[in-house]
Simulated assay, not measured.
Amino acid sequence: MQRIEFELDREFVELNQLLKLAGVCDSGGAGKAIVASGAVRVDGAVELRKTCKIRSGQSVTLGEVEIRVVAG
């Protein structure tokens, strides 16, 4: 499994934007489509809210990629 550590420079980042900023997808629109498909898990649970607020300490999984969000 590939692990990415994402440094958060604000209170939260929207899930679809996190996928784009971490390089997992090309755009926020693509991120929304991926989330809507049910392929994304936040802290182990399927997340379908495209603009779900992701905060420091949470982890997001998409396939074989895990993004750990840490305070910047």
Rank of each mutant, 00 (worst) to 15 (best):
A33L: 14
I34D: 01
K32H: 04
A33C: 08
F6E: 01
I34Y: 06
E5K: 10
N16R: 12
E7G: 14
V65M: 09
S27W: 09
V60L: 10
E47W: 08
R10D: 15
L48K: 11
S56F: 09
G44E: 12
A36L: 09
K20M: 10
F12V: 00
G38W: 05
A30V: 14
L48I: 05
K20L: 05
K50E: 12
V13Y: 01
R41V: 00
E14C: 06
S27A: 13
A39W: 07
V42G: 02
E14H: 10
G31S: 07
A45L: 11
A30R: 14
A30F: 12
E11Q: 13
F12H: 07
K53G: 00
L48Q: 04
F6T: 06
K20I: 03
V40G: 05
K53T: 02
S59C: 13
Q2R: 14
L18W: 01
F6V: 10
L18V: 02
E47A: 10
A22D: 04
N16T: 03
G57W: 12
L18G: 01
R10Y: 03
F12S: 01
A39S: 14
Q17R: 15
M1G: 14
D43N: 15
K53M: 08
L48Y: 08
Q2Y: 06
V60P: 05
L15N: 06
V46L: 10
V35M: 09
N16E: 14
S59E: 14
S27K: 11
I54F: 03
C25I: 15
V65P: 07
G44K: 12
L62G: 01
R3A: 09
C25D: 05
A36G: 00
G38I: 07
S27Y: 07
L21K: 15
E11K: 10
R55N: 10
L15D: 02
V40M: 07
C52K: 15
A22M: 04
F12M: 00
G23L: 02
V60K: 11
G63E: 04
E47Q: 14
I54Q: 02
L19P: 02
S27E: 12
R3Q: 13
